[in-house]
């Protein structure tokens, strides 16, 4: 257990089942937006961004970690934490088991720490491949522990959100994870901690309405769907069609909810600038 943090290569070099799965069976992939067909190898080289229209393909937590951190610099936390079934919800444990197999993750969020352009950072990456990235007890607990770890060790926190919201099968316990994660971030913030929120497709419901909106800096990936309520529900409620760009990252930027929309190719650069500004410190209190 002691050498856990030193055995970094173990996690970084072997592509997981999910990482492999993200690359489709064939050697080409068709952009869902502009229909352009691209070689997967080419896509991979461009961080899974369509070179024709700029569409950002959703990516798994592992792929994200690979492209975010300096090479071989990261470790994972709380790898073996799993949800129980607080409501005794029928079939819930089976569904979790099958998503664990499918994604190679224990839950809908990966947490760990690693280096970004030489800056040590505590990072969480949600994966919509696991129960739509929904937040239940484990997601809430892993995020809370990550924030506490960062607090104790003086690290910045970056959370990549990708979630349909709170997890239905854990009912009110899922709802309370919104308060739990927000409270942890408030304590972290009070202690001077830096938190950068990066919303990726999709960031909605209870995740959007808790930690994802609470960054010192709130960013999003181009085209990401971000919002509280679902589009269909809103259209039904107000009885009108919503504009095409409604609840996109660009829409939120326009309405003052984001600091920037950052293309994937520029993310490490922007993050390293923020981390360097913060590392330099401020005036004496």
């Amino acid at each position: 257990m002691k050498d856990f943090f030193t055995k970094k290569k173990k996690y970084a070099t072997v592509p997981s089942a999910k990482a492999r799965q993200d690359v489709p069976e064939g050697i080409v992939r068709k952009c869902p937006k502009c229909k352009k067909i691209m070689y997967v190898k080419e896509l991979q080289k461009h961080l899974f961004v369509c070179q024709s229209c700029g569409y950002h393909y959703p990516i798994s937590a592992q792929v994200r970690a690979e492209m975010l951190f300096d090479q071989n610099s990261y470790v994972e936390f709380d790898r073996n934490m799993v949800s129980l079934n607080p409501l005794q919800f029928p079939n819930y444990l089976n569904k979790l088991e099958s998503d664990r197999k499918k994604t190679g993750l224990n839950e809908a969020v990966w947490t760990g720490k690693g280096m970004i352009e030489g800056y040590e950072t505590a990072v969480a990456i949600m994966d919509k491949g696991f129960r739509m990235g929904s937040m239940g007890s484990v997601v809430g607990e892993k995020l809370t522990r990550l924030v506490e770890y960062a607090d104790q060790n003086g690290l910045p926190v970056i959370i990549f959100s990708a979630s349909g919201g709170a997890r239905m099968q854990e009912g009110v316990l899922s709802l309370m994870q919104m308060a739990k994660t927000s409270a942890a971030l408030k304590t972290f913030s009070k202690n001077g901690g830096l938190y950068i929120s990066i919303m990726t497709h999709p960031t909605t419901g209870g995740v959007s309405a808790s930690f994802a909106s609470l960054g010192d800096y709130n960013f999003a990936e181009p085209g990401a769907l971000i919002g509280f309520a679902g589009r269909r529900i809103i259209e039904q409620t107000i009885g009108e069609k919503l504009p095409e760009d409604f609840q996109t990252a660009e829409f939120l930027l326009k309405h003052g909810q984001l600091d920037q929309v950052i293309p994937r190719s520029e993310l490490r650069n922007v993050l390293s600038r923020i981390l360097s500004i913060h590392a330099a410190g401020g005036v004496e209190g």
Partner: peptide
């Protein structure tokens, strides 16, 4: 919370999140 266009434009998510954040302390 109201699922409406104006509510989203004015940051329904942020408003809820902010309350959780501040109430906790």
């Amino acid at each position: 919370a109201f699922p409406g266009k104006a509510a989203e434009e004015r940051g329904q998510s942020e408003a809820i999140a902010r309350n959780l954040f501040e109430m906790s302390w």
